[in-house]
Write a protein that binds this DNA or RNA. Sequence first.
DNA 1: CGTTGAGTTGAGGTAAGTCAAGACATGTGG
DNA 2: CCACATGTCTTGACTTACCTCAACTCAACG
Lengths: 252, 252
Amino acid sequence: MANVKPVFPPRIPCIRCPLRRLDTFRDFSPPELEFVQDFKVAELVANPGTSVVVEGERHPQLYTLLSGWGFRYKILEDGRRQILNYVLPGDLIGLQGNIMLEMQHSVEALTKMTLCVFERERLMTLYQHHPSLAYDITWLAAREESMLDEHLLSIGRRSALERAAYLLIFLYSRAIGTGSLSQRQNAPLPLTQQHVADTLGLSLVHTNKTLRKVAALGLIRWLDRGCEILDPPGLQNIAQWRPPAESKRPFI
Amino acid sequence: MANVKPVFPPRIPCIRCPLRRLDTFRDFSPPELEFVQDFKVAELVANPGTSVVVEGERHPQLYTLLSGWGFRYKILEDGRRQILNYVLPGDLIGLQGNIMLEMQHSVEALTKMTLCVFERERLMTLYQHHPSLAYDITWLAAREESMLDEHLLSIGRRSALERAAYLLIFLYSRAIGTGSLSQRQNAPLPLTQQHVADTLGLSLVHTNKTLRKVAALGLIRWLDRGCEILDPPGLQNIAQWRPPAESKRPFI
DNA sequence: CGTTGAGTTGAGGTAAGTCAAGACATGTGG
DNA sequence: CCACATGTCTTGACTTACCTCAACTCAACG
């Protein structure tokens, strides 16, 4: 983990947390904010391609992604890889490590990521003194479960074209919600076709052919290491999927 | 829901809850037990084939499965069905309904099920006064997530034979842990091949041919509406999967 | 100016889907 | 009791979606 650099003390105080400025996220009450500020022990920067969490290892820490993109994945003994979900700002990383002894999946940075670091030991204190934050953690876990349900439906029952459309519109709508694309107009999703293949459960070659079909329909444009979304409603129609109507969501 | 019958008042007091007798589950402290007893407002019996929870509907209640088997699933507009996971005793049902406005999946009874019914409104009270139970709910959500991760890996990257082996040994080990098979020696998993197909993301015909291969290897025997597990280690080897080493787990 | 990683394309193979028909058990109404 | 319908499992024949192998382009980088 040569490219994972912890930063002490945290540079961004929670009161000036960039996520708090987005409509997507709910506000903390003053005591909650105070607690979270104290709960946060450091910041971490991970460069693209580096692992923040490794399957089979113990993890004494919990993270919230502040900025950047990452993904969770598992691999079989012979190397086959399945990407389980993507991690975007506001997402909690490593909760499973508190429940199981060892992490059951890995997390890798797709772009440069900034993370808030929390100590696992103090999680119980959070549950004891801030029930609303405890409920938020459950909320986040249930939301992750809901996304995984949708992915399962997708891999299990959608065709390659539908799967690709679903993944792209799914990522696009999450990116919009977390301000992860807004820098410039039509900024691309930061993926390679290998990532798409490993998410959809397809081979790289067939993924390429499928993405070219989606592009031929005028719905996307594939760039060097990314995907520009041209027609969100078109993708929704092919995928038979609408983004969930989320009101303000919590984060820690 | 003609076959879903609520029972008031609950017939089984929590202190004599059959799940508490199993090694798999942790004990409640006396105050926890008292709270849960009060939290439980009714019991529900659902016959095979009936729905306890329906995608798209609002759900003011939360359930814990006391006995029997069920499954969670989603369907696409054109009817394609994906089974997401199975529900076994001790599992919480309907948590997502508390987070999202509407349920994002349905739950159907595979065998006759008995459920404990809790009121959603009082969930906040639980979080406020019983942090340990709140943590348990998070624990259950994270465990569900972990199972879904494994299913995704399976559907995305395992071959049909490996997938079938994985599903069967997965269900078998869960069933053993919850005492859902122990009545008689080698009791079968209560599934049809259609359920297996909809879980694995395969067609019914191909599922049948795959299951016959697994049976030809001497690992299972397929009965009328169920699957008898003959060689758990053999299934584990094909699936490249070991059941997680769980110590005592919580339930509500 | 080779090397590397990402994307592209074609040819041929195989796993899985679809269609169709039949066996068998169970249940039901006449 | 029979006649008939229904659900589950089974099998064969054919089609197709996806996979593997292999080669090539192109840009970025030292």
